[in-house]
């Protein structure tokens, strides 16, 4: 069973901060350790920024999971140009946005399960899950 997720819009830098706060709240509620809370919030920050900058805005869903274990799943969706070469986008240092290029590969290292589905121009969905 999964509780109703929080859905948050991502259309500004302030929204990115709000996503961080929502993820922190959920991670605390689920009883994640301080280090794991920090990893989750950091991953959420990276992915929310990607949604804003590369996706042209979108939304985040914060889902509390009960099965098969307790966990927190973060889903980021946008309808921007998409990621034509997902494998390349994972490489550290690869960037089209002028940043460090650590967002996607870095956040993958901070969680347990990570997936990217992208149909350029239609929908890009990044899902990150950390189990307790």
């Amino acid at each position: 069973m999964t509780a109703t997720p929080d859905t948050l819009p991502i259309h500004s830098e302030d929204d990115v901060v709000r996503v961080r706060h929502a993820v922190r709240r959920a991670a605390v509620e689920l009883g994640f350790s301080l280090v794991d809370q920090t990893k989750l919030v950091t991953a959420a920050s990276e992915l929310a920024r990607n949604t804003l900058i590369h996706g042209g805005g979108g939304e985040a869903r914060v889902e509390r999971l009960d099965t098969p274990r307790r966990g927190l799943r973060l889903v980021f969706e946008d309808r921007g140009p998409g990621i034509p070469d997902v494998e390349r986008a994972f490489q550290d240092g690869f960037t089209t946005g002028g940043g460090l290029g650590l967002g996607l590969g870095g956040s993958r290292r901070l969680v347990n399960d990570f997936s990217v589905e992208s149909t350029p121009g239609v929908l890009t969905r990044v899902t990150a899950t950390k189990w307790k």
Binding site: V35, T38, T42, L102, G105, R109, L110
Partner: peptide
């Protein structure tokens, strides 16, 4: 710097 932040930054690759 908080310890949890240091751990996370290194794993992130910064």
């Amino acid at each position: 710097m908080q310890p949890a932040v240091a751990i996370t930054l290194v794993e992130l690759g910064v």
